[in-house]
């Protein structure tokens, strides 16, 4: 069985790998991980009907979740998979129908709101000092952001996270390293909806 996990961000494969490793899901053994680099490239890939049996997608909602979900369904339809009027569940989509391509989708941060993968990663600080630093970094970003980049929730989350990384004693540059250093997702457990979705995706690939 051929399976492919399409991830929107250029460095987000490392995040997914770290999370999977923590829960002993050898995702790389079952899935070819493709970091698409941008949402357009990910959607383009969905428009092509390949011989892959399972396609899973992790992308950001950005400023409009409904629009993003419609874009995903439209691309899938062009690629030969008709998801019809399927609503994106809060627990993430697992599409496992007879004689159809298996498909899974998680739209960051939580399939329900606008935002990005960074919004999910930043949830649940263990250390109050770090939480304070992150809040200050976010406030700083919100102060300067209208002059630097578009004023969106997703942009806030991305820039806020990186600003917080930068003010560490030993700055980290990519979220996957922050996960490794327990700066991010320190209390992530099997009850987390994203982890449960990853487990179902892992099982979907047989």
């Amino acid at each position: 069985m051929k399976s492919r996990l399409l991830i929107e961000g250029k460095y987000d494969g490392g995040i997914v790998n770290r999370i999977c490793r923590r829960f002993e899901l050898q995702i790389g053994d079952k899935f070819e991980l493709v970091e698409c680099g941008r949402i357009g490239a990910l959607l383009d890939q969905l428009t092509v009907d390949t011989r892959v049996d399972v396609v899973a997608v992790i992308c950001d909602a950005d400023q409009d979740l409904v629009r993003r979900w419609d874009e995903i369904k439209g691309a899938c339809s062009k690629g030969g998979l008709d998801l019809g009027n399927t609503v994106l569940p809060s627990s993430g989509l697992i599409w496992n129908e007879e004689k159809q391509q298996k498909f899974a989708c998680w739209v960051m941060p939580d399939n329900q709101t606008s935002g990005a993968i960074e919004g999910r990663l930043a949830a649940g600080h263990r250390d109050p000092l770090q939480q304070g630093l992150h809040e200050q970094a976010l406030a700083f970003v919100r102060g300067v952001q209208p002059r630097l980049f578009p004023n969106t929730v997703a942009a806030d989350q991305k820039a806020g996270l990186r600003a917080w990384f930068a003010v560490q004693e030993e700055p980290v540059w990519v979220p996957s390293h922050a996960i490794a250093h327990q700066m991010l997702l320190p209390q992530l457990d099997r009850q987390d909806a994203f982890v449960q979705w990853l487990e179902r995706v892992y099982a979907l690939a047989g």
Binding site: A41, D44, Q45, T47, V48, D49, T50, R51
Partner: peptide, 11 residues
Amino acid sequence: RVVHKQAVEVR
């Protein structure tokens, strides 16, 4: 165009 630009395997 996608097959070419993103080297998608379609065979």
